[in-house]
Design a protein around this nucleic acid. Sequence first.
RNA 1: GCCGCCAUCGUCUAAUGGUUAGGACAACACUCUUUCAAGGUGUAAAUCCGGGUUCGAUUCCCGGUGGCGGUACCA
Length: 499
Amino acid sequence: MSEKIKTISKEIKNPRVRIAPSPTGYFHIGTARTALFNYLVARKYNGKFILRIEDTDKERSKKEYEEDILENLKWLKLFWDEGIEVDGPYGPYRQSERLDIYEKYLKELINKGLAYYCFCTVEELEYKRQEMMSRGEAPRYDGHCRNLSQEEIEEKLKNKTPYVIRLKMPEKEIIISDLIRGKVKFNTKLIGDFIIAKGLRNPLYNFSVVVDDYEMHINYVIRGEEHLPNTPRQIAIYEAFGWEPPIFAHLPLILNPDRSKMSKRFGDVAMKDFRKKGYLPEAIINFLVFLGWHLPEKNGETINEILTLDEIIEQFDFFRIQKAGAIFNIDKLDWINAEYIERLPIDELTSYAVPFLTEKFGENILTDIEFIKKIIETHRQRIKTLAELPEIASYFFILPDYDVSLLYWQNMTKDELISNLDFIYKLFLNLDNKLFTKQQLEAIIMPEVEKRGRGNVLWPLRVALSGSKNSAGPFEIMEVLGKSETLKRIANALNKLNN
RNA sequence: GCCGCCAUCGUCUAAUGGUUAGGACAACACUCUUUCAAGGUGUAAAUCCGGGUUCGAUUCCCGGUGGCGGUACCA
């Protein structure tokens, strides 16, 4: 067995992969990335993607967080084949519902003498740890309770002496064959007899994860690099049971701009915050996949980096995954997001954008969804996130009050200005409403506009329509606004000038 | 402290024992233009350091430095 895991194969066969988030916080960007790579492996190499909830920490786990995890995984369209909600052959998929299983295996280890009760107090342990540290040694358990007699153990258990369960760690070298990093060696002497459970029905992470991965037939464990130091402990548990460990792959970390681990940052790493800021799931997926992975060279040509999930699956090659951590570059995310806002089918984009609009302008704007679509259409090239939309498009809903002086283009006179707006107004007055499209309007007024000077007509027109220094072009605005609102706004500008 | 991982433009990265070290984002300049965007064109910008192996190393090996992760009766 150990020989087998020492050779690193360059292929992935029938993978059963999983993500196992713990519901102790909102679903965050790091979990999403791990989920994405597991999902890609399952899809690319014809495997199964499993979702398990690791809620053994009763104090910190919350239902609200679990719901947030499921909700956001679905939002990202990272659907799982087995697990919570969808179920499967190796459930239950929530660790708090698997306590009987852990108890059974814990007893097995204790009965075989491969794990033991430890009655040392936290204070004793802490003292010893400090002592070892001060000697420059790796802090580990000294094995004090390793060889207690059966009588002693029973006595202490009878007296309800608090205890934990430790694995009897054999002294050896454990070599991990990591699919991304190659061979990594650990000396178990430096680890010692670590705690695998706080009680028969209170397993700790390293233990429950091994039992579950074994029971659920997980054969590839793909997770963040922060788990690399856990791996020898887990392998030791596999070996204690005589089970074959899965193949491990440790993904590079996502980093803050200061190169520290991103999931450690306080605030705004939660997926819900990215949603609130108006990022699209497609963009987040696309961005995340290029954190630690890339397409091969395409002989000097520009590589198309905007890829849908299906295209990513198509192009995906696990063995091109990077070793070094990658900084989360928000500028690139913004760019990708803008690309998706620009190219997504209008109906899809609208459904993403509507909540942002209704939040500011109320539900009643939904009575004219065509109007909303047109607004989105005229702004999709001007925004990076959906959260910018209500702000940038507000003049479609309410014409802001503006100063008359804003109507003047360069050094035109008041008479010229009035004449130009008046001309437009009169021209439109008798125009069929059907002609209020960008192309038609352009065709109709541009010849005259050229005579009067583009800026002299178009600038005041645009200001009259938008009330803003910056906005979409006048023809686009008029198409969206329609004839009567257009005339109203031009008249409004003329009024301002005549007062 | 101890254990481990990592190292190409500011950032994400491509490539190879021999290249003018390529692309993307960002930056900057120019252009388009009725504003703002978008678009187009262009500029600047990198192989951490020191040894070795080699005709040749950014690539392979060793050492250093630096960064990061872990060091829990969290996951």
